[in-house]
Amino acid sequence: MRVLLSLAVVAVLAAGIVTVLRDVPFGGNSSRLGSHFVENGREDTGAANIVTSVVLGYRGFDTLGEVTVLFVAAVGLGALLVAGEKNAPRKLEKASMVLTTGSRFLFPLILLFGAYIFIHGHLTPGGGFQGGAIIASGYLLVYLGSRDRRLGKNWAASIETGGGLTFVLLGLAGLTAAGHWFLSNFLPLGVPGQLLSAGIIPIIYVAIGLKVGVELTGVIDSLMGGTE
């Protein structure tokens, strides 16, 4: 009986979802916003990558919110693990030489690639969140390779604070500089496609990239049991 009832509810919902989605033309140019972004994104924001022009241009405030969501999640996880931490530190087995050497060799290359992804975020696919995730993956490798190494807490705190503050302060600078709006792009936009273009966007992406990298590394750090 319960199964039948659940199936009936699911069927009703599915029928509803089908009615909603039937008329939505996927892939087609259905939305006024989409065509506006594609046509004007380059000139409005100076970013050659249209996705970036939406993420940090038109909807930059959402991205500030997303950065905060990740910050809250990382801080919250840390708080829970500190609160739950009552047993003695676990014994760790030493990593094999292959892993240790490999991680030493790959670590700088991964950092370089991550930095490339977020520095070129306004030009090519990628951006701060993606680059930050790559950097964190490099640190994960180091943690696996040499298990007693840890991220310096003071460094981590300064980068987290610095990245977040850069974003907020650039927004506030837009408020006082030309435009009078929070997060308005007050630096020269330059020629789309060049490294130094798109005004404040590359600066924000570098800040986000470092912040996300450090935060995700912090998450790995807390999960491995390295508490303050």
């Binding site: 910050f71 907020v168 506030l172 929070f182």
Partner: peptide, 16 residues
């Protein structure tokens, strides 16, 4: 929104 958010971001350094 911006000012409390910015203040929250500064707490890790203040704590250090």
């Amino acid at each position: 929104l911006a000012v409390p958010m910015g203040l929250a971001f500064t707490v890790p350094v203040i704590e250090r």
